[in-house]
Design a protein around this nucleic acid. Structure first.
Lengths: 207, 207
DNA sequence: GGGCGTATAGTCCATGTGGACTAGTCGACA
DNA sequence: TGTCGACTAGTCCACATGGACTATACGCCC
């Protein structure tokens, strides 16, 4: 809990998934892949096992027993501790207003519903300022390059980045508007059952 | 040269920079940071030293002597070998048509001028197909979510990704047009001196 | 001319990641 | 009934990264 040296995106996804209920690691792996969460971050089994071990060592989650399904190998089930809950929220708070690590931002956005609407608006506003500043820098960079008659082929990536920054600002503004006028639903309570954890292990072995 | 287990973006940037002339590692570090190439990838000194060592071990670059500036510490100068040249080109060829690793793509785009214009057009066309396919997947994903009445707050990241994919396709189309009608300069020969390596070490110590 | 900060040039270790490997089990098919 | 492939559950090692640390030298201010 005390300054857990910055969580990785994988760690956050694991913690967030455990909010839906206790699980063993293999189920985590299956669930995350099935939901195509590897769209955000490459999810390798090795990484997930390691990360779970680290999270336990750091007290963000705890073992809640070992069960066994038929004659399959044993598996250790984990539960999210309070510190884990808080860690997710703090992480989102830290990553949402930031523009440098794009995958971190995407994960933070996916988990933004863990914070209150107004706080998210505030964090996104801060991010917007950074986006605008960055776009400005890119544009002055391009202007200076034009003065020096730098050939185009060395500016392509810069131009692309400027275009994408522009699109991102536009998109974020539309999101902000929907958050603001309440046309976008919010909160963690309203999750319909059928989109929650699918393929929950059908039979529980412990009584 | 034999399947150098996938170069990292940092490695490619180092190799590409060495095309401009032999350098010692510290100069690489300085030059890359001065050019703000850490805009693409975080560039840490440790990483760069390690990477140079690996590249030498793998035969992509070679030591060309140790020099010394006044009483400063010795420094080892490296030169790009043929295999290194080829490796950059092959890497760009592999990463340019791809959509999963976005920083790899950005680096590939920055170094695209190492390939011929027509080949780049071809690679980008292949990438476009993937972008369209991905956008489609995102849209059907959103449609299915709408049918199931999944609350908005769980779709934000998906919506953003769709918006950005759209912007990216538009941008890439404009690039393709400029490549096609030759309104965009191309080739590696046309680099004006003043945008090449700045702050070259003023005095060479070896005769 | 003594001291302080910054530049030079690099090493080293803790941490993270990914792919290969192990090893048993279940279902299906021939 | 044997075996072939896919699933379950996990371990292990090589590699990559980043930050802290070292150590000397130069410039500059007072």
């Amino acid at each position: 809990m005390p300054e857990t040296s910055r969580l990785t995106p994988v760690a956050v996804m694991i913690l967030a998934t455990l909010r839906e209920g206790d699980m063993h690691t293999y189920e985590l792996v299956r669930l995350l892949k099935e939901r195509r969460d590897d769209r955000l971050v490459p999810l390798q089994k090795g990484t997930i096992y390691h990360t779970v071990a680290r999270l336990e060592r750091d007290g963000l989650l705890a073992e809640v027993g070992v069960d066994r399904d038929g004659n399959r190998p044993e598996r250790t089930t984990y539960t999210l501790r309070d510190a884990g809950h808080r860690a997710v929220e703090e992480w989102v708070r830290a990553e949402l207003p930031q523009i440098d690590r794009s995958t971190d931002f995407r994960v933070a956005l996916s988990e933004a519903h863990n914070l209150e609407r107004d706080e998210v608006i505030d964090l996104l506003d801060r991010r917007r300022a950074l986006l605008v500043a960055s776009l400005d820098e890119h544009r002055t960079g391009l202007d200076r390059a034009a003065e020096r008659e730098t050939p185009d082929q060395f500016l392509i990536e810069l131009q692309r980045q400027a275009a994408l920054l522009d699109a991102e600002i536009a998109w974020q503004d539309s999101l902000r508007a929907r958050l603001d006028d309440r046309s976008l639903a919010w909160g963690i309570a309203e999750i319909p059952d059928h989109i929650k954890k699918k393929h929950r292990v059908s039979k529980e072995t412990t009584p």
